[in-house]
Design a protein around this nucleic acid. Structure first.
Lengths: 117, 117
DNA sequence: TGGCTATTTTTCTATATTGCCAAATATACA
DNA sequence: TGTATATTTGGCAATATAGAAAAATAGCCA
């Protein structure tokens, strides 16, 4: 069955997919603040350097980051900072869901703790 | 090694991950235009209805869509239409990359066809 | 009740992703 | 040249995902 949708959906989805991992999202935010080399990021993240390198290559292949070699290190930077604008909306989704959960709980008479700020 | 980043990254990433599939991206856009039932979407997409149902459950679990049963069908609708705002930025990323590719080609003396609009 | 329609769940297979280790590569520099 | 540093690659095991078919569930209506 499985039919091919317009290739535009593939292209867009691959960027979102690249962003859809906690470590890569962290990297994106970090690169928004300032460019960083692999080593910097590895220390912040606490995974093996090879793991971080692979995450960076996913981001690079999706076109989200650029790399530039300077001195002994390779510096990565965010290609299109507009992706950071997504975060507000993501928080809206999360907040909406939290409220939804609370309503369900309330209408079942379940006491809920005050929401975590 | 693998260390736990702030759970906020997990939460945000899971939404992006849910969006990171061509079929689900199509569904999101379609639901932005108007609510739809599973059957409607299945016809548009051309996959098995069970596959579409599963994609919808991914979207539902991530909090992106809501469902409501009316009559014999279940209607899905977009929960936070702000996710549609992502598209402009995604196109920017794609465009930036296309230009990058063209520059590489040019500086190697490769003739490229005029860009597809 | 029985059959119809709409949807979800289960089960299966194939494929992709993640994360670590070890090894390879690249580069600076003494 | 040799050594240290920075990064990537290949390999592997564990886990997750996608898609289809079949079975299960739910509501409707004759």
């Amino acid at each position: 069955m499985e039919q091919k949708l317009h290739p535009q959906y593939e292209a867009r989805a691959s960027i979102l997919k690249a962003m859809g991992h906690p470590t890569r999202l962290f990297i994106i935010e970090e690169l928004h603040k300032s460019e960083r080399c692999v080593n910097d990021l590895t220390e912040m993240i606490g995974s093996d350097v090879s793991t971080v390198s692979k995450h960076l290559s996913v981001l690079k292949n999706s076109g989200l980051v650029l790399d530039e070699k300077r001195g002994t290190s390779i510096y990565y930077r965010l290609c299109c900072p507009c992706v950071l604008d997504f975060i507000g909306c993501l928080e809206t989704v999360l907040k909406t869901n939290a409220e939804k959960q609370m309503n369900i709980a309330q209408c079942c008479g379940i006491k809920t703790a005050s929401p975590v700020r």
